[in-house]
Simulated assay, not measured.
Amino acid sequence: MKAIRVTNPGRYEDLALVDEPTPELGRRDVLIKVRACSLNFRDTIIAKGSYPGPLAHHVIPISDGAGDVVAVGSDVTRVTVGDRVTVNCSCDWVAGPNLAEYRSNSVGTTIDGMLAEFVRVEERAVIQLPDDFSYTDAAALPCAAVSAWSALHVAAPLSPGQTVLIQGSGGVSLFGLQIARMFGARVLALTSSEEKAQRLKAMGAAAVVNYRETPNWEDPILELTGGKGVDKVIEIGGGGTINHSIACTRAGGEIGLVGYVAGMAGSLRPITLQMRSVNLKPISIGPRISFEALLTGMQNTGTRPVIDSVYGFSQFKDALRHLESGNHFGKVVIDMEA
């Protein structure tokens, strides 16, 4: 099979196209022919050698993908050959809290990922797709959509009428907007351009603040909430934005810390966090049951991912560059058969 391996992290040009045997299956393994996969911000830093987490030697990158089951191990019971499936990012995390041992079986980081013609995963990680979900749509979900779901359910479930703040127009943020609207919540958004602001409003954002024109964007967010602050924040900026987010979250509100696109370093102000009694939780994507609940919600409401662009397998480096540029609106997908 053809696959891409991270053989010399540092440059996209050093990602290696390899031809190797199709993986052999254990008793509870499933072999998937990958039809589509999608990129996340962490895929760019994995390729460049700056990913801060554990990484398998010469790993096949990309956690998100969808395809067809083409073979199963002797003891597999959850799926059969021919099923259309996607895969939870953490193969062992089915339900409950995230445990340290789950990190040793994480798709695209500690085990081989989706940027290959075939992928082998344990059956408990596999999720069957609704009939009317395309491979492109399904491939967009595992990391970004499940992270958004988890970030909106930090200490208490998302409820109708609550106010949610999203940052930017990448995959996690747009899924956050869509999920919040599925629940009947009000969404405030941050973005960098008027064009993106109009698109966010068309998707249901009640108001949008341009963070480039208004560096202290917590002030207008507070004004938009009558000085109270938002109920929930999907924090994707990290060190560059976290203190602004705390400042505009209501007392007792929640921040789901998903990413660090505005910087990994920073100085968190604990006194502000304590004085506002804000619940801050790092998000490590989510368990399989959250993914299944998300799929059910999307199916029942007719919600589908926002797809920015689709690249062919041979164009994967261009896809990474496009994602890194920040010019995307929604998910960047790779069609493995194009």
Rank of each mutant, 00 (worst) to 15 (best):
S159P: 04
G171R: 05
M336F: 08
G184R: 02
N40M: 07
L294A: 01
M275L: 15
D318W: 02
A247I: 02
I221R: 03
V94Q: 13
A180D: 05
M275E: 14
S192Y: 12
R212V: 13
V18D: 07
D14V: 04
S325F: 07
G326H: 07
N243Y: 08
G67S: 00
K281D: 00
R304V: 08
W93V: 04
D335W: 10
M203N: 06
G226F: 06
D68R: 10
P160W: 06
A145R: 07
V87N: 07
E122R: 12
G330Q: 12
P270N: 11
C143P: 08
D131V: 05
V70Q: 09
A148H: 06
T7I: 15
N40E: 00
D92E: 13
V164W: 04
L188R: 08
R28T: 14
L174P: 10
D335I: 11
T214S: 03
V209N: 09
I283S: 07
R186E: 14
D112A: 11
D137P: 10
P9M: 11
A251Q: 14
I289K: 01
F313L: 14
V208E: 05
S309H: 12
V30H: 02
Y311T: 04
S267I: 13
V306E: 01
A145K: 05
E292P: 01
E235W: 01
E337P: 00
V278H: 11
G67I: 08
G176P: 01
Y211G: 00
A202C: 00
V107I: 15
H328C: 11
P305L: 07
G238Q: 07
A156R: 15
T249G: 08
V34D: 10
Y135W: 03
V6S: 09
K228S: 02
L190M: 00
D68C: 00
D112V: 08
A205H: 05
I242Y: 04
L200E: 10
G229M: 13
L99P: 03
G168E: 09
D64I: 06
V119Q: 12
L174G: 02
N243H: 11
